[in-house]
Design a protein around this nucleic acid. Sequence first.
DNA 1: TCGGAATGGAAGTTTGCAGTTCCAATATAG
DNA 2: CTATATTGGAACTGCAAACTTCCATTCCGA
Lengths: 198, 198
Amino acid sequence: MSSKQVSSARSRTERAIVTAAVRVWVRDRTATLPQIAEAAEVGRTTLHRYFPERDGLLRAATEHALEVVGGAIAEAEPDRGHPLEAIRRVVAALASTSEAIMFVFGDQSLARDVVPAAEPDLPTPHDPVIDLIRRGQAEGVFDDQLSAEWIQQVLWGVSYTAFEQVEQGTLAKFDVATTVIRTLEHGITARATPERQP
Amino acid sequence: MSSKQVSSARSRTERAIVTAAVRVWVRDRTATLPQIAEAAEVGRTTLHRYFPERDGLLRAATEHALEVVGGAIAEAEPDRGHPLEAIRRVVAALASTSEAIMFVFGDQSLARDVVPAAEPDLPTPHDPVIDLIRRGQAEGVFDDQLSAEWIQQVLWGVSYTAFEQVEQGTLAKFDVATTVIRTLEHGITARATPERQP
DNA sequence: TCGGAATGGAAGTTTGCAGTTCCAATATAG
DNA sequence: CTATATTGGAACTGCAAACTTCCATTCCGA
């Protein structure tokens, strides 16, 4: 895309800045640029050279986070195997990108304003996770009384909740995938509930 | 608590400001005080007279939102009846306080910093919802392989997700309680899944 | 009706951060 | 080794929003 070949130094610095931005902003959305420069171990001047304005960095950080999440989902091969197995792989994959997910979904204004601009076509149309859910519904594995979009949002929401718990030490990182999957598959009720008889 | 009797005017104005703050900040955490003054139909000067600094209003808004949510939960009588029925009442009650819930839980820094200061003893110890979940687990209704705290967080998380969907028009307000409860009770899988056989 | 309480408009001050400029120091490639 | 690219320290401007002050007006209870 760039007209000139980027030097290795440039790309290394840019990557450091963007990842630092995600890392810092995920904990404090109001963190200042100097704070991010410090986290990236980069001078304030350098940061402004790479990203002349705050919004540009915000967008780059968002795009980067989306790439990380998208890549993890792709690696999980959601279009392969039994839907239940596939979604377990997806959850496990998401667990390894918790920072990126919390960054993107931790601020509703990000998801509302920046994400659409960042991904002109990928987000809603042809989402591999939606495809997986639809496939699972067609095969009678997932509840087809619930919309695929709702199920997807629940997947994000429950995963996000788990990441939060890890963050505050209430849940062991190791248990994230198991807990999320168990909750998704059976809800919060004990197994084999006598189908409502309260 | 106050040494002087508060005039009806004072309390009416204060209430208008606080509810406006919740209403505005739930959609845009970065909204300015003039914006809130306008939403409260109150002069900028008046707002500053009631809340000399931003943090004070933020705290008051948080306390108010917590009171609203706590009141709704209490009205749902979570300690009465079958746990499944009780939690359905709680979800229905939460649905009517979506604004307050989204305000408190929509910003992790709020839940992290302001909430503990706002409720010195109520939040974690002796939470009626936790009590309900524990009771349900003891009666074999809720999954006792999951911690009560996790189940509570899932309850919040799924409800929050539903409110978001309503906000963006993806879910009808009318369907919130049904959808949340169905998801909580059975997860995202079709009823009577042949207990794993992928 | 009268007087204190409450309100709000307008125009301050202060603060903190984004964005800029300049120049010297250092790293990297040819 | 030298030239160019990259970096970053420091001091600047500009701006937006929090917070303040003053005073005229309106509301409300005694």
